[in-house]
Design a protein around this nucleic acid. Structure first.
Length: 111
DNA sequence: GCCTTGACGGTAA
DNA sequence: CTTACCGCCAAGG
C-alpha cells in the first residue's frame, strides 16, 4: 500500500484521463506503459476502484480485442456502448468496430 | 497463511 | 473463428 500502490492507481487514472475523445485503449497497453507489463488485470482492477470516480472515462478502456468486457460494471447494459457511440465510435456485438483504427497507445502517442 | 476470483494477455490446439 | 491453459498481481473469504 502506502504511496507505491496509490501511485499505480493514480497513474492509471491519469492515463485514462489523457485518452483523447473518440479514442480507446487497452488494459495491456496501460499496464505496459506503467511498466507492469503482463499485469493488465491490475489495470482493470484499478479501474474498478476508479468506478465511483467520474473523472475517469473508463468506457474508453477495453480489452485487447476491443471487446466491452467492462460494460457490465456500468450498471446499464448499453451505458458503455452509448458513451462510445456518442464519441463517434461504432460498437457492434459489444465490440468496437475498427478497433485498431481508434486504438490509442499511451506508450506511443503519449510521451 | 492458503485458496478463489477477476474490467487481461498471449499462445496453443 | 472458438476453446483451453498458463502467467501476473492484488483483494477477499
Amino acid at each position: 500500500m502506502k504511496e507505491k500502490e496509490r501511485n499505480f492507481f493514480k497513474d492509471v487514472y491519469e492515463v485514462v484521463k489523457l485518452i483523447p475523445k473518440g479514442r480507446v485503449t487497452s488494459y495491456g497497453a496501460i499496464a505496459a506503459y506503467l511498466g507492469s507489463k503482463g499485469s493488465a488485470r491490475m489495470v482493470g482492477w484499478a479501474l474498478i476502484a476508479a468506478h465511483p470516480i467520474t473523472d475517469v472515462p473508463a468506457y474508453r478502456v477495453v480489452n485487447r480485442n476491443g471487446l466491452l468486457t467492462g460494460k457490465q460494471h456500468f450498471g446499464a447494459p448499453d451505458a458503455m456502448k452509448n458513451y462510445l457511440e456518442a464519441e463517434g465510435l461504432q460498437v457492434e456485438n459489444d465490440r468496437i468496430v475498427d478497433f485498431e483504427k481508434y486504438f490509442w497507445d499511451p506508450a506511443k502517442e503519449l510521451i
